[in-house]
Structure formats: C-alpha cells, structure tokens
Amino acid sequence: MALRDRPLSANRVAIITLWLLTALVICLCLGISFGAGHVALTDLLPGNSLNSVERAILYEVRLPRVLIAGLLGGALTVAGVVFQALLRNPLADPYVLGVSGGASIGGVVAITLGLGTVAGGLGSMIVPACAFLGALGTLLLIEMIATVDGRLTVYTVLLTGVIFNAFAAALIYFIQSIASLQQLHEIVFYLMGRIPSLGHEALGVFAIAILLGTGALVAMSRDYNALSLGEEGAMHLGVDVERVKRRTFILGSLLTGLSVAMGGLIGFVGLVVPHMLRMMIGPDHRILLPAAFLGGGAFLVLADLFARLVLAPNELPVGVVTALIGGPFFLYLLRTRSRIYGI
C-alpha cells in the first residue's frame, strides 16, 4: 500500500512493469528448463553440447509451449480485468459474457465430426478454427440481442451471456450423450483446458492477435478508471461510454474466444489474477492492464509447469491446476487482505 500514497506516474508503471516482466521471463525460463526429457536451459550455455533431439525438445516443444501458456494467461487475465471494469463487478470473468460457450460448441462439434484427428500441416488447427468461428458467431448474436436503441446495455449483455452459457452447456451435454467413447474422452479433455501445441507460424499469428487486442484495450485504461464512477459518471468526465463499452465487449470477447479456441476452458486465471494484482498494485487500469498481461502470463506458465511435473510423465489438464491452486489461494488473499481491498 505504501506505493499508493502518490498518484500513478509513468515512472511507477515502468518500475512495476519491469518487475513483472522479470518475473514472467523467470517463469518462462523455468517452464523451458523442466519437463519430461532431461534437458534444461542451462544446457545451452557454452561448453555443453546438445544433440538434435534435445535441441528439438527445447526449441520445438517447450519454447512454443511456454510462450502459448504466457499468451493464453495474459489474454484471459486482460479480458477478466476489462469485463470487471465494464460490468463494475468483481465477480466477472472472461467467460461470463457467453463467448466461451460459443467457442466450446464450435470446438466440440468439430471434434464430434472427427475433425480433431485430421492429419497434415493445418489439421491440428481445424478444431481451434471451428471454435473461434463459434465464438465469433456468439459475439455477433449477443451484440445483436443486447443492443437496444443503438445502445449496448450492460445488464442485458450480462444476462444474455449467462443464459447463452447455460444453453451452450446443455447443447454440449447433448452432444456428449451421442458421441462415441473416444470422442467423449477428447471432448472432456478439450473442455478442461490445456495448453495446445502449435507450429511456429500459428504461434506467430496467435501472438500478434493477442498483442494487438491487448494493446487496444490498454489504450482505454483511463476510460476504465472513469467507468468505475458508473456510466453517467464517466460520461460527465468526457468518456464516450457507448464506444468504450462496445469496443471492450468486442475486443475482450475476441481475446476470450481466441483463448478458448486454443486452450479450452482454462478457468480461474481471468478471475483470480486480476484480484491478486488489484490487491498488490491498486485498481488503476493504466498499470493494472499491463500487469494483468504479464502477471496472468507468468501465472499460467507456472500452472502449466506444475501440470506437467506433478504426475510426470502424465500431464494434468492445466485448467484443473489453475482451479486447484487459484481457488484456495484467492480465498486466502480475500480473508487476509480484504479490508484493504475494500470488498
């Protein structure tokens, strides 16, 4: 709290960002260094020689994996922060506005149609692509339903999202009930949330999309601060609230849709990490949003490392780990620091 005696300055943002960036890099290095197969980052130091298999493990398997985990964690946490700001509700998470339901339907349908086992270069991208289409369709549908007289009503968005998620869950149960045992297994693991393996090109596209979306949301940081005074309060401070709401809904949903398409329903990151960060660095979105991207990334990289190591050589779905660690840790923080936090 001592840090918060003075208002936020560019200086403080730089310092906190640097700290979190360091933490993220350390987590990434840890993530690269551990896992099945005895090879570590330190083996790259001069004097050690790597054979081609070890090299492939580092560059082709672990490096993309930790980067994807970092991007997924960052995207989900940023989406959580902006949805909480949009709804002025600390219980919002990236999945609350319904897009995740649409993405799940798309992914599950693709798996059921047998598209999950298509071989070839882009074969592994078919399920994520279908899931992302599902997310886009849902985004358009919810925006259409929730736009009344040209305005996006926040409570209608929220209710539509919640109802749509329930509908999506029912639809997925239905699909599961008619799917084959093999497909059922695939569906369950898809929905539990795991870090996918992507080729370098796909990773590059994914990274650019996530960074662009995050950048566009960070640009609205000051507007989110004003929005904490309510929509009318923000309007009185000169915020074009309709534009901010719509952009936030669309960009946040795109980040969420992309993440769910890639990683399934990785829970808790987008809910817990924003709260942990708010407790540590305060609610100002100008630092909270960059911190969410870096901190969320670090969190998911660590969770993924844990998921890979705890039952090695078997892997746990990372979504299970985030919920198992995130839940109790969050309750602990809530009990010990809730007075400062003020909820």
Binding site: L8, A10, G230, R278, P283
Partner: peptide
C-alpha cells in the same frame, strides 16, 4: 455516485482531469 473499485480519494479527484488530458496517459 457509485464507486466500482477502491480508488483512493486523490485518484478519484484526479479523474476530474480526464477530459483535459487528451492524449496523455498520466496526470
């Protein structure tokens, strides 16, 4: 007025500078 998040009093008053900041990110 509603206050969604636990901003400090000074931070809330500084929000009054919002329209005057134009392109700048910080006060």
């Amino acid at each position: 007025s509603v206050f969604g998040f636990p901003f400090s009093v000074l931070e809330v008053v500084l929000m009054g500078r919002h329209p005057h900041l134009a392109g700048q990110a910080f006060e």
